[in-house]
Amino acid sequence: MSLTVDQINCYILPGRIEDVREGLEQAAAAETLGLGGIFLSERWETKEIGSAMGALSQRTQRIKLVAGLTHFGTRHPLVLAGMASTMQSLSGNRFILGFGRSVPARFKRLGIPIVNNGGMADHVAILRKLWAGETVTYDGPAGQYPEMRLGRRCDNPPPVILGAIGPKTLALGGAHFDGILLHPFLTPEGVARSIAIARKAAEEAGRDPDALLFYATVVAAVDGCTAQERASIVESRIVSYLRHREIGTQILDMNGWDRAPMERLLARDLNELDFMPKDALEAETILARAAEDLPPEWLSASAAIGGPDQCIARLHDYIDAGASQILLHGPTPRHQAAIIGGLNKAAS
């Protein structure tokens, strides 16, 4: 299948940031490149989705604005529905609402309810009813709402997508959501397996599997980046996922990889980095060095690495595996431009 520039998305304001206004220029640059969408991951202290996306809607004219990701339970459903409908109005129907699973340990400390699969499915159903102008009376895993109504229907409700990696969450996405954001470091074969699970669940739920939107998150390190940039983009990032057994196991199983290398990695007890007073660069260096425990072919098979043409060929692999869209993870705007330039050249 062909790959066009408007199928490419990128993150803006990755990680911890000080000045959210930098995202305005990053979004404008992505739109100038012709990208199809920008993703903003929520951090309440500096990247609250509603306010940040509201500003981005006025700095851009065409590009899709994806909340990637927020969580259920952090806003009342009425507030969430109103925020999303307001974003649709502000952006000219360019908003996409993305959710991830809760972070149980953190949410417990904050007093935020942890929503199970049934609760997430019900939350989506509640949002859709509110957008349709219905009155919602509900008592279940998503909460207790005696009588809830938005007050004005949303004629163009945003698509709702789910970040998923494990089989149960993929099936949940296929049965109840409009699309799925797939995890970084899945191989094209892992992406194909993931998509098959979601599509099967959609069929079993009586939904059209062809209507589902699948974002393949592809870590990309383009030739020309420094050794430090490459280590930050690829080695430290894959280790940051695999050092968490519950995440790493899902990645390995979906890719069909042996677990022994991950067990060697886990023996390093790298999760202590979360509690040690190290600066970000030092922590990244430690994580990158730990990648020596992993087979080199894991990195080359699950990321786009090399010159622009090599990276573009790998992106095509993910589209051929069934992905609808590509979310570039890691490359700077300069390296994104190299990929986009190659795509435009191939199309001309």
Rank of each mutant, 00 (worst) to 15 (best):
A323V: 06
D274E: 02
L273I: 09
C311K: 00
L265E: 01
A303M: 11
T285I: 03
D320H: 10
A347H: 14
A288M: 11
E272K: 09
F275S: 14
G342K: 07
L299G: 02
A290S: 11
A321L: 15
P331G: 14
R314E: 04
E297S: 00
R334G: 08
A288H: 13
A290H: 05
F275N: 13
I326P: 01
G306C: 14
M262S: 01
I339F: 09
E263R: 09
H335A: 01
F275P: 02
L281V: 15
P277N: 03
E263K: 00
P333N: 12
S324V: 08
I339L: 07
L273Y: 07
H316A: 10
A283R: 11
L287H: 05
E282C: 09
D274Q: 02
A304Q: 00
D279A: 14
K278C: 12
G341I: 03
L281F: 14
E263V: 00
K278T: 15
A291R: 03
E292N: 02
N344G: 05
A260N: 02
L273G: 02
Q325D: 01
A323I: 09
C311P: 12
A267Q: 15
P333L: 14
E263F: 02
I319E: 05
A321I: 14
D309P: 12
A260C: 00
E284L: 07
I319P: 07
A301I: 00
P295I: 02
P296I: 03
A290N: 06
N271V: 07
W298V: 01
R264G: 00
I312E: 04
Y318L: 07
D293E: 15
S302L: 03
S300E: 11
E282H: 10
Q325Y: 01
I286A: 08
D309V: 12
L266T: 03
L327R: 13
A260P: 01
